[in-house]
């Protein structure tokens, strides 16, 4: 399951400088895969992948450490009235999210998405957008 971890660096505390992920891994023993990290001066965002069964535990511990955690479902949204099933998204995606079914319709495997946004730019029909 994908969790989107976000934190603010405003005010006195700065979770961006704390080894939160390492601490949670050590404490809980859950294996966390960091798929994307984006740290700016005032805020930060880390996308992690954890086993479904451990997601609640990880979320709870991280929130106790002062970061916000949100379960990421349907990371990509596809406007089905705009999509014409061309397939331009298929080869630009580093995670193999998109594929054709037997009827040459686009299928999404949302769980693989790491929110890189390449497909959004590549779609000729502007049918794709990232969930915010």
């Amino acid at each position: 399951m994908k969790l989107l971890v976000t934190f603010s660096r405003r005010g006195g505390r700065d979770p961006g400088r704390e080894p939160i992920i390492a601490r949670v891994v050590k404490e809980t023993g859950v294996l966390i895969n960091v798929e994307k990290a984006y740290i700016e001066s005032m805020a930060g965002e880390v996308l992690i992948d954890v086993p479904d069964a451990d997601a609640e535990l990880v979320r709870q511990r991280m929130e106790e450490m002062g970061v916000a955690v949100r379960v990421l479902e349907d990371a990509i949204s596809r406007d089905e009235t705009e999509c014409i099933d061309c397939g331009a998204c298929i080869s630009v995606c580093p995670q193999d999210v998109f594929s054709f079914d037997d009827e040459w319709r686009i299928q999404l495997q949302q769980g693989r998405c790491v929110l890189c946004g390449k497909c959004v730019r590549a779609c000729p029909h502007q049918a794709l957008s990232l969930q915010q």
Partner: peptide, 23 residues
Amino acid sequence: SGRIELVGEEVRTSSLSSYRKAR
């Protein structure tokens, strides 16, 4: 087929036209 070999690597292919709509 979605994948072809190109300069020794397997590379994914993307269609810009829609085969579903062509049908």
